[in-house]
Design a protein around this nucleic acid. Structure first.
Lengths: 265, 265
DNA sequence: CGAAAAATACTGGTATGACCAGTTGATGAG
DNA sequence: CTCATCAACTGGTCATACCAGTATTTTTCG
């Protein structure tokens, strides 16, 4: 059984998804005005409160600008939105994956991980090191059975502990966003990134570098570790982009349809 | 005249700021339930719609989890919030700056810039290069007068163009968030980061490396450029943290009060 | 007594209609 | 034509009612 949690969406969630979808997929270009709130009520068949809740969220995400009396205008999300929008950009409303966004995420991951390792080596205390070592030991255990899903989970937890020990709140928050997207593609990534996930030795090396506060070593090993998975994903993305370009001449590539989880809260 | 744009806040904006403030400043710990919506109406003296708009935004920011019938529970924002929360964390409600957050931002900037330069060198087209060169020329012009504010603006635009040419949407979005925070501290940073801002030569070198698609060179020069400003800011942060620690034994450091701009939209 | 079931008192979700407060643009006076 | 005025938008706020889940309490019954 591989059931998925049922997403109970409220009306305003639905409104938010529809409107943000229209915006990020380009049907509402920057500068143009959204329909008036009362008009959206008619169009979507919901009360004004639901519309307003959704519009406030759009404004917070940097997708629109609301001004009393002046209407609600669409902004250029590439210029105004924050990293939180990644999730919305990665998955199109039809469930396909935006490969350009996927590539971006992998690149960002590869850029941040070495610095996370460096700062972790600088700032981690004994308790932090103990957690890392324990995770590595669990990985070593899972490695003998080649339990890939388990290794993936542990590797994710390893980096979770790393970023938490790095003493950098910006990395922590960015990591939360990246993890969110990663979780949605777990099943695919466990295959594609198998080499990186199986590389328990590098995880161990990083943990020990952190233990002896060896910033340089931690940084470089982390970089090398990231490179494995990143290269494979980027190769795959390139192949898929070529395929779809040739296949039906679309500029945007896509991949497997995925049902929509994502809890309300 | 150094006037500031007046921020016209709606009621739900005010509610959002108060509640998010209580949460990120720890007075509402993770796991505990927020007062019921109708109760918040009484406590804050506003109607329920305003409360609900704010709560939806809190949920979107990853600060709370709302469930029908079950109440609204506070989440651990360090684990659930996205990078967009940085802004909220950098400035406390009393206007002081959280130095730990400021340090985090500088570190992230220094980690991302080299990779942005690398990707830019890989993917920038002729038009992108032309824009970069033009900005560098303007910087060279401003440098002869040592017009620091102008150099700061141009340097920011330079990186704006770089990140836009990097072809990485995650970097673009993260940059938007970082720029937002940077803008609020411009006046301070122009002094602290003077060395970096004045280093037009490095900007030029990066632009030329991008022009000839020299990824390695672009990356390294960008790294060296970032290091200048970053080191200075980190030094300052360290000094201020020590000062406040000794001064009144507070664990958190703070610095200059700043009036609150930030437009509604 | 103790466990299952039903009633009740919560919680958030939706709907309606009214009115206030800014902005915009048409209208009419000069 | 220019400018002041006003009407028709826009979003912002409010009050009230009821629906729909959830948690708690009370009751029932083995």
């Amino acid at each position: 059984m591989n059931l998925r949690r049922i997403a109970k969406k409220t009306l305003s969630d639905e409104v938010y998804e529809q409107l943000s979808g229209e915006i990020v997929e380009g049907r509402f270009g920057p500068g143009i005005s959204l329909p008036a709130e009362r008009q959206l009520c008619d169009m979507l068949g919901v009360n004004r409160g639901a519309i307003r809740e959704a519009l406030k969220r759009l404004a917070q995400a940097g997708l629109v600008s609301i001004s009393q009396g002046g209407g609600t205008k669409v902004l250029d999300f590439r210029r105004n939105a924050g990293l939180d929008l990644l999730m919305r950009l990665l998955f199109r409303r039809d469930g396909t994956v935006n490969l350009e966004v996927a590539r971006s995420i992998m690149e960002m991951r590869a850029a941040l991980a070495p610095d996370i390792a460096r700062l972790c080596a600088r700032r981690a205390d004994k308790a932090d090191v103990a957690v890392l070592r324990q995770l590595v030991e669990q990985m070593e255990g899972a490695a003998v059975d080649d339990d890939l899903p388990q290794l993936q989970t542990l590797s994710l937890r390893f980096w979770d502990a790393m970023v938490r020990s790095s003493g950098n709140i910006a990395y922590e928050l960015a990591f939360n966003t990246l993890r969110e997207t990663y979780d949605r593609l777990r099943d695919i990534l466990v295959q594609v990134m198998a080499d990186e996930i199986r590389d328990v030795r590098s995880h161990r090396t990083i943990a020990e570098a952190v233990a002896r506060a060896d910033e340089l070593s931690a940084k470089h090993v982390a970089g090398a570790l990231m490179e494995q998975g990143t290269r494979r994903v980027l190769e795959l993305v390139a192949v898929l982009q070529d395929a779809t370009r040739q296949g039906h001449g679309a500029d945007e590539a896509d991949e497997r349809s995925a049902p929509d989880p994502e809890p309300t809260g």
